[in-house]
C-alpha cells in the first residue's frame, strides 16, 4: 500500500469515527474535513489553521450550520427534548454522496494517481460550492476561495 493509500484510509477511518459521534449512518464530506483537521499531515493542517480552522472550530461551525438551517424552516433545535439516543454499535462504513463527490473531485485534480497528495483530498472537499461544507465555512467566517487557493499553493510549492 502506498503512503497516499494509507493516508486516504486513515482519513476515511477517522471520518467514520466522526460520523459515529455525529449519529450519522454515512460518512459525509464534513466528516472527512473534521478527520483532516484532526490529522497531523503538515500541509493540510497548516492551510486549515491559517484560516482559523481546527477540529473544534469546524465542529462548532457545523453545529451552527445545523441550527441555522433548521431555523430557516422555522424549527428550533430544542423542539424535542428527548434523551440522547445510544450510538450505533459500530461506526458507519458507507460513504455518503457528499464524501464520494469530494473524493472524486480530489482524485480528478491529478492525471496520475502517483501525483495524488493529502492536500488533494482537502481540495476535493473544498471544491464543493453547495452543501454543508461551504455553508459551514461561510458561517465560520472563512473565505472558501481564499482557503482553496492556499491549499492549491501548497501543492505547487509556492507556499511555505
Amino acid at each position: 500500500m502506498t503512503a497516499i493509500d494509507e493516508y486516504i484510509n486513515t482519513i476515511i477511518g477517522q471520518g467514520a469515527h466522526e460520523a459515529h459521534t455525529d449519529g450519522s449512518a454515512t460518512i459525509e464530506a464534513h466528516h472527512l474535513l473534521l478527520a483532516i483537521a484532526a490529522g497531523r499531515e503538515t500541509a493540510t493542517h497548516q492551510a486549515l489553521t491559517s484560516a482559523g480552522l481546527d477540529h473544534q472550530a469546524i465542529r462548532d461551525a457545523l453545529d451552527r450550520e445545523f441550527e441555522h438551517s433548521l431555523n430557516a424552516a422555522g424549527v428550533p433545535l430544542t423542539t424535542f427534548d428527548l434523551p440522547k439516543p445510544s450510538s450505533a454499535a459500530t461506526p458507519p462504513s458507507q460513504l455518503g454522496a457528499s464524501a464520494k463527490l469530494a473524493l472524486e473531485r480530489g482524485f480528478a485534480s491529478v492525471s496520475r494517481k502517483k501525483d495524488l497528495r493529502p492536500a488533494h483530498l482537502l481540495l476535493g472537499i473544498l471544491q464543493a460550492q453547495i452543501g454543508t461544507v461551504p455553508r459551514t465555512l461561510t458561517l465560520a467566517g472563512v473565505d472558501q476561495a481564499d482557503l482553496t487557493a492556499r491549499v492549491q499553493r501548497t501543492l505547487t510549492g509556492e507556499d511555505g
Partner: peptide
C-alpha cells in the same frame, strides 16, 4: 440554497 439546506437539516433532525 437555504430551503434545500433546511430539508437536509430536517432529515438529520
Amino acid at each position: 440554497a437555504d430551503a434545500l439546506a433546511a430539508v437536509a437539516a430536517l432529515r438529520r433532525l
